[in-house]
Computed example of a mutant assay.
Amino acid sequence: MNKHMATFIQDNLDEILVRWQEMMKDDSDEKFFQIMSQDVINKTSREFAELMISNLFEGENNYENRLNEFTSKVVRFGWSISFVMKAINHFAQVVYDMLEQNKTITEQNMKEYVMVFAEWINPMRDGIVETYAKTWERTVQLQKIALQELSASLIPVFDKISVMPLVGTIDTERAKLIMENLLDGVVKHRAEVVLLDITGVPVVDTMVAHHIIQAADAVRLVGAKCMLVGIRPEIAQTIVTLGINLKDFTTTSTLQRGVEQALAWTNRKIVEVEED
């Protein structure tokens, strides 16, 4: 019966996909069908259909390989897990309705076909959820590593003056990376003044402040001064409300003011030169 159903799907795949796409467009809030070209939609839909059929035809190993490949692709497209579940349910519904319309499913064999559909769909749901979770976790981890690498480097802007722009949430793991890069950068660039720019840090709580204070103390131990720049009004209010002690810090609201102060500490300043 499984092979008979798989053959039916293959023979009527074009009509099934048309009906399935219509159901997905009507029922889903996802942007995939709105922003992707029709060629991409058709190609991805056909791959999805082949995945749906593959566990009826193929062995377990081939099906798992196809499942992994497809799940990786839909994660890149931004399909949510609820969107994937809707896709599975609607595909099964279209197939069931068409089998019922051509009298393949009758009142006499309905219970048997319901069991066949359950054995077909339920393992697929479980497999996709598990594979999707692993793929998404791996994707998020790679994005996290990329963010860490991009947002924890010390950049020399003037002789003896360097800036470290911080972006995103600072947790214990990132704080360790910041500390390592900060100290290595101070030695490498022979920095005398380091500006920690927190303009891109959305929230500064007690834990984040603790990590920043630790980083500043470490900078002082290697013979450089540390300044905290990019303190927005809402961040300043949070720091005061939480009672975080930053009295040992020189702080400024903008990177520009911080650079001016750093130049002053190194006996320099920016002046305008009039042209003759």
Rank of each mutant, 00 (worst) to 15 (best):
W136G: 02
W136Y: 14
E137N: 12
R138W: 07
R138P: 02
R138C: 05
R138I: 09
T139G: 02
V140Q: 15
Q141W: 03
Q141I: 08
Q141F: 09
L142P: 03
L142S: 12
K144R: 15
I145E: 15
I145V: 15
A146Y: 10
A146L: 14
A146D: 12
L147Y: 10
L147G: 14
Q148T: 06
L150M: 13
S151R: 08
S151N: 03
A152Y: 04
L154W: 03
L154S: 04
L154T: 04
P156S: 08
P156T: 09
V157T: 06
F158S: 02
D159G: 02
D159N: 09
K160A: 00
K160I: 00
I161K: 00
S162H: 00
M164A: 04
M164E: 06
P165V: 10
V167W: 04
T169A: 11
T169I: 13
I170Y: 08
I170K: 09
D171I: 09
T172V: 10
T172C: 06
E173W: 03
R174N: 05
R174S: 08
R174M: 08
A175Q: 09
A175K: 09
K176W: 05
M179S: 11
E180S: 11
E180Q: 13
L182F: 05
L182Q: 06
L183W: 07
D184S: 13
G185W: 00
G185K: 00
G185R: 01
G185N: 02
G185Y: 01
V186L: 01
V186C: 02
V187Y: 07
V187H: 11
V187K: 12
V187I: 15
K188Y: 14
A191T: 15
A191M: 03
E192M: 02
V193N: 00
V193M: 00
V193W: 00
V193F: 00
L195W: 01
L195V: 01
L196W: 02
D197S: 04
D197N: 14
I198V: 15
I198S: 05
T199V: 13
T199M: 10
T199D: 04
G200M: 07
G200E: 10
G200F: 06
V201H: 14
V201K: 09
V201S: 11
P202S: 08
V203T: 07
V204I: 15
D205R: 06
T206R: 08
T206I: 10
V208T: 15
V208P: 13
A209E: 04
H210D: 15
H211P: 09
H211C: 09
I212R: 04
I213M: 14
Q214Y: 06
Q214N: 13
A215M: 11
A216L: 10
A216W: 03
